[in-house]
Write a protein that binds this DNA or RNA. Sequence first.
DNA 1: GCACTCACG
DNA 2: ACGTACGTGAGTGCC
Length: 905
Amino acid sequence: MGTHVTINLFLTGTELILSKGAMNPVSKLVLIDGNSIAYRAFFALPLLSNSSGVYTNAVYGFTTMLLKILEEEKPTHLLVAFDAGKTTFRHKDYQEYKGKREKTPVELSEQLPLIKEVLDAFGIRHFEMENYEADDIIGTLANLAEKQQVETLIISGDKDLLQLVRDHVHVLIPRKGLSDTVRYDKKAVDDRYGLTPEQIIDLKGLMGDPSDNIPGIPGVGEKTALKLLHQFSSVEEIIAHIDQISGKKLQEKVREHQEQALLSKKLATIYCDVPLEMNIDDLIYTGYHLEKVLEIFKRLEFKSLLERFAKDSDEAAVIDVKEVKYMMATEDNLEQLAPFFQLERLAVFVEATAENPHRAEAIAFALSNGEESVYIPVSLALHWPEFQEWLADPNRSKVVYDSKKSKILLENMGLDIHGMQFDVLLAAYLLDPSETQLELSDVTDKYLGHILPSDEEVYGKGAKRQILEGEALAQHLARKAQAIYQLCPVLQQEIESAGLRSLLHELEMPLALILAEMEQRGVKVDQDRLHELGEELKKTLDQLTEEIYDIAGTEFNLNSPKQLGEILFDKLGLPVLKKTKTGYSTSADVLEKLAPQHEIVEKILHYRQVGKLYSTYIEGLKKEIGADGKIHTQFHQTITATGRLSSAEPNLQNIPIRLEEGRRIRQIFVPSEEGWYMLAADYSQIELRVLAHLSEDAALQKAFQEDQDIHTQTAMDVFGVSKEEVTPLMRRQAKAVNFGIVYGISDFGLAQNLNIPRKEAKTFIDRYFATYPGVKRYMDEAVEKARRDGYVTTLFNRRRYLPDIHSSNYNVRSFAERTAMNTPIQGTAADIIKFAMLHLDKEMKEKELKSRLLLQVHDELVFEVPEDELDLMKQLVPEIMEGTISLSVPLKVDIHYGKNWYETK
DNA sequence: GCACTCACG
DNA sequence: ACGTACGTGAGTGCC
């Protein structure tokens, strides 16, 4: 009615305007189906969110796709069309249109306004229109463009849009994910379907589309529909020649549903006469607004994109990274700089040749008072007594980033550092231990804004990494030192208000110094024994390889899960019990189930086991032995989300112990001095004891107060039997339940672990909670707290944020709930052993013991001890570890010693 | 660089 | 119906 009049008037108008726009020729038009691409992006990426909990995955995916289009297609004109409202003119014909479609998840719909903000920042037109879908807007413009012979590209995740393909109009569709795309012109449509673009409508009329609730003809899928169309060319023609359709059943179906097919075709037809009050010239793309782009990327925390834009642009430096004032210390101006050292507080940063301080050398220092910086090359630092005295003076405060690394680098060049009063890295970690981006530039971006370019930006990445020299290096280090100084008050404030002051100053910062000492001491390696074990394992490995090839009847790469899967499942026909994303699963739990069916499986399992020992623990460890015959691991203090340490280069927290064959690896770890002993002290059941304390469950507390074997006790309670009646199987199952409880139990997880039906697992859990109701209450409260506060805490107030606790995705939410249950337990245990390390270190220094702490393995401490301190340490270590913290249940420490780590059992 | 597998608590 | 046990680091294959 009125609509049609408008359209006619409008089209005339458009053509007039188009001809007027000849000064700005449209050489390439890109039309994007906004909702469809946002939808694709949302499901292609994990549910990312920025630090304020705003979901950003769809925005990110959309933006990267947009950037790719701008770069590759270089459009002169651009529009992103969105769907408006809930109903369209199509609902008049068919009320159920899109009826069964799942509601767009809130996590996605709340990102649409952000996508529009990004488009605004890029100066890209976006548009939506009451009663019409994005398709219709795109179709209308594409038709106009075709008339004008304007080269046009439509981008959508929806194949329906292929009906719009014309000589000048092409369609780009992401294949899977976002990066892989297919481009359709007329020929490509014909190659793919054997149809013209117009016939795509007929195709959908016949097939229907469940996602839009378009019925089509029931039972007709793509294959049948294509066959019919190749024969009759359109829905109307098919209906006109129903009796010529081959196959009686099909004929029946078409006859019965012909009206429905015609309606479906109508619904699938993109409406190309939308009364748009715009023309193609209005869609001109003139480039993005840098400041706006940087602002929104910063807000969304799109770091990689930020860097890309900051780097590509000359203006970026002006906008963001200011030059910093600095002086370069030289032989001649030392006196001039001396007053600097009288300041109450200075930031100090030391740059090194590599990440790992045990294999790096210091290059230069930078000091800052927040406004001015001083750059000091190492060569100068080494003979500048005033500087060295300042470093070593505990009464002159230093602010640092990474005190552990700084201390190691300095000590390796013979310098002492004391008075590190604030560690920016540790503070940032405690404020959010889930944060994986903790480089200085990341911390600065987060708390101060972009005033410091990242090392990667300045030095380059990977093989291209090249530490600068001269002024460029001085400027960068001056910026770093200034950033550290300026971060201090900001982080201090944050730490204070989060109640993390004592955790930072009385736990993590002093611990960093102890860890530095442990790393520097290193652990001595018995290299003869290492070679011996290596030879032995190699022999076993060769023999197993030969036997496996023999049984398989062919040689293949045993280390390739892909090739192994082909042998086991294709060649030998073993049943496929589990699949991975990419193919057959050949993991140990699968192979163990297959072992009875074929002799080869057991040998493969053994090969895997020995192969792991050889490559990771023989060859791997050999590479890590230093010139001093020792291994110097790094204990990372800011990696885990729970507060535990981690160990790397090499990891000394995962040296084999469970199987005897691997356990012998521990024989290579020996005391560094003749006649000394290795001594290991481990907390017994610390996590369950912590649980007993946190949950205040009377029965669990009683079990520990009476020092019962906890797994046997759990078996008695859960199975309702006496101690004597507990079978080894019952104890094993009870043990798995206890593990499950600590991990935040689910019947599914327990069932998988015990290889029992899920129902049975559920019974175990129900009985457990009936026996220990306090534990049940604690678990519920932990989840409740996470929902209420957004985070959970340990006994010592270490916190971990759990934004996913509110997710509408069951899996994501469940994971967060289990984390809410597990983190206070694992984290409190981590806090306790850290405190114990502090107390032990203090005690050992006061007593002037020669014994040394070497390793921490989560619930275990490993020392090297001279023979004459053995008795003392055997008594002192458990006493301090058990007495560090007083809980409602006792802590218990077991102690072992021997001539190497293996013997400490 | 990612997927898979496996070593530890 | 969904479909994971919690926390790590390292070696290998393969794109």
